[in-house]
Amino acid sequence: MAYRWGMAVDLDRCTGCEACVTACHAENNIPTVGAGQAARGRAMHWIRVERYYEGDFPDVRVKFRPVLCQHCDAAPCEAVCPTYASHQSEDGLNAQVYNRCIGTRYCGNACMYNVRFFNFFNPEWEKPLNLQLNPDVSIRSVGVMEKCTFCVQRIKAAKVLIKSENRDLKDGELQPACAQACPTTALVFGDLNDPESRVARLSHSPRGTKLLEDLGAEPKVTYLQKQAWYEPDAH
């Protein structure tokens, strides 16, 4: 049976440390644009940790929400692309083919999660930082969109490995960089088509919700958090 990759994000476990953001940058050769360009809205973080504050000072609570591409089944970014750069892969990944992208940026507008990022300039790495680039991941040139791939290079490698060893993929064996780096295991990645996988079970947890679920994009990322009826008085 085909894979159907998905993720569960346990908000009750997330400490907002942003290790996932750093790991993602390192794994996927995401350029850092510098303070000036970041202030002009050119920063690229395939996964970001959104901070929300609850309550009034001094009784303030911070909530963190890591947001990455939700790899929607009915992803609004896909159909609007005139060149099929954005489309759904057989494994249910929301794939972005850089070579086909001509940079209309329509996908970025259509995405309600704002998790698509645009290369406004050609990326640069100061020496010797160019030596730390991941050879498994292509560098994106100016004018193309990029976004979270669920570390598709690791998925491909794992598929080759299990084929050569003639075995099935073990749950948890394959992890994207963010999940691997998460110290509290708030991010759980796996195959949603395997009912026994951790991610499949967590996706059916009563704590689970989907982000902006009512917009109908059918995201494959589930957010887990204590539901409101748990909280006696939040404020």
Partner: peptide, 14 residues
């Protein structure tokens, strides 16, 4: 046949 946005491959409306 490339799948986009869960639409049918031959999408009549568009």
């Amino acid at each position: 046949p490339l799948k986009t946005s869960g639409m049918p491959i031959v999408s009549w409306w568009p």
